[in-house]
Design a protein around this nucleic acid. Structure first.
Lengths: 219, 219, 219, 219
DNA sequence: TATGAATGAGGCTTCATTCAT
DNA sequence: CATGAATGAAGCCTCATTCAT
């Protein structure tokens, strides 16, 4: 009887397009993050979103496009949060510190999004992943520029040379450390950011001698 | 013409098992590295190895097992090279330097293997990838121990606390920098290792002030 | 011409699930009965059902499950028909007579189902066939109980001892005689049941002396 | 070392063809009986026979032919044993009794052979199984003739009519009872044969009244 | 004689995607 | 707007069988 009753009106109400899209994206981000792009199935996504598959396609297109939409949303969210956290007037160490702290806050608040951004690596044959690579490179370049601005004057040419690979390494270290955090969740975002700041700013040579970086210390 | 091109390599016949296994593994490492686990097809691997599919299965088992065999071979190769390069008698900086140099040499000499090790991330539902995660964690731990040994005496408790996350970050930085290298191949392995050494040992704070790490300098 | 012949039945479209499931089961029972489990191919079943293969899987699961579904449907049908034909108030001979007659009517009306139930033997490595063995054993036990009830009082202990193996033999005789019937179809179900009744009730010793069993005669 | 030593001379000696064929047939009968025709693999058979696959094919041909060879050997063995046990001079009951006893002795002594003969049912699409069906029918006919001879004089026409289906049912009952025996092995061949004899000769009607058949009693 | 090496062919299964209602 | 019904295409895997030594 109750089964019958449920069938008397459509399972889901007519919702405004915007709401539906967010529902779907939320579900898709979760499934893609949990399974990875290829093993994720459109069936699971549609079910998890509480939407029929035709709606999925009609709202967000094919699997590639849906995945891209997820990447774009999460990438933009992270980028914006970092942007609004750093202030180009500050010195390099402070900017870095704020950026890292924001990053780890994002990781904490939206672990699926982070997994999504972090998991996929560029792969020949998955051309649509090029956009993700592009996005990463942008971040790397932003950091490089930030450091460049912040070190104008003092920086020797040799330092400048190192800026981009340094930024790349920094991004890699952040990603890896965030993963480590997943397995050791008894740390705060602040603590994680501070850890990373120490590493990249002070270097192991200093740490070994007991010299630590502290927020507010400056360059 | 293109039809003829497909017959590029004539099917060599009746080779001893050992040789065939190596052929297959070589091809599989290449295809898995190029495409990733899921998109790689057994068809492509068998074709690329110049061997029929039943041989794949007869010699190296199902797709999972073949993939694991690739991971094991490449992982063991890298591990061994690094092991034989570092000498636990040396101080930390020197050990790190040698390890990093060997790593980048491996990346240069066996880029497919590197991509393989680097590309796959652990995903729920791909339990066989757990072995890769395990292997990575072992490396992290090895580095942490190395640093721990090398800093005995001087290290404060706080430093010790940081050793494992630091190692994780270091591995991430190496991976990311190696990727950057793929896109800027006009650098030597030695140069890349030196770059990374500067970052992790000196830290950006020192670099900014013109203090660089040099091989042979010691801790 | 033959190309056109293949399109014999136009793909009916958009049928309710219930109808499709029956269509599929009908086809599957036929193919499984004709070929046996292993040689039957999902391709042939899907084609014979006028449905694409994914529908088979979506509606009735993998080959094992589809086969089990066939067994269950046919087994239940036969069991029910016999159940509603016999009446535990009657004496043993009458019950047996009605059961046998119903059995042969089922064989006549649903030869594929009968072949299905009769053909498969339990094999190590086909664990899903255990259910069929179980079902057979249930029938044997039912018959044994029926005879037991019907002979209470008169039966000596020795008779009771024989009830289960006797029932097993009876089932085997029925199966074999039904097969014989397939090759000599110019007999009625009633005639076949009477034949078997004579054998099992009177025994050859009586038959040789011209003593036959007749319906309505009683024990 | 021992592994190496084993390789210094061929794993198997040159054996006369006859011996090899018996080896192979023994293994094949076992595997076919255990798994059934389709699931049995030539790999398992060759391994179980201690012979390489090319030898298998060279000695006994393809899978169908090998299977047929198994059926023929086992079928002939059983037929011969029964033939030499019965004596057409004896009366019907005694012949039947001896035949049944021999049958159950064969089942006891060569259960794989029995399973082989009993398991496969004629299947459209497995044309090579027709020979098995033929063989069964021969047995049925033999029994019918035996009964016919043994009842000449006393038998009414109606009895004659029943002889072939009766024989078919008898064979089915034997098969089924032999299967039951597999699951209740704590009985002797003699006991089983006596059981069956009671059923087919006396019939349930007599049994219910305490009339049993005893060896040596005659018709 | 004897066998390790090798494969064509075919079966099971699933997935992204679309149609008809 | 919304969906249950439907499928082409492709992937993994195994088997009977033969070749070259």
């Amino acid at each position: 009887m109750s089964e019958h009753a449920e069938r008397t009106r459509p399972r889901t109400r007519r919702l405004p397009r915007e709401v539906r899209e967010r529902q779907i994206l939320d579900a898709a981000v979760h499934v893609f993050a949990t399974r990875g792009f290829h093993p994720a199935s459109m069936d699971e996504i549609s079910e998890s979103a509480g939407v029929s598959k035709p709606m999925l396609y009609s709202y967000l297109g094919a699997k590639d496009e849906l995945f891209l939409a997820c990447l774009r949303r999460e990438g933009a969210r992270l980028t914006e949060e970092i942007h609004s956290a750093v202030d180009t007037e500050l010195d390099a160490a402070e900017q870095l510190w704020r950026g890292l702290r924001t990053l780890f806050e994002y990781v904490r608040d939206d672990p699926d999004g982070w997994t999504l951004l972090r998991r996929q690596t560029n792969a020949q044959g998955d051309p649509f992943l090029a956009e993700l690579a592009q996005w990463r490179q942008n971040i790397v370049r932003l950091i490089a520029e930030m450091l460049s601005r912040a070190t104008e004057g003092g920086a020797t040419p040799r330092t400048t040379d190192q800026l981009e690979p340094f930024s790349a390494a920094l991004v890699g270290a952040s990603e890896s450390l965030a993963n480590w955090w997943f397995e050791h969740p008894d740390h705060t975002a602040d603590g994680m950011a501070r850890r990373l700041m120490n590493m990249v700013w002070m270097g192991f040579g200093d740490l070994v001698q007991g010299n630590y970086w502290e927020p507010g210390t400056g360059a």
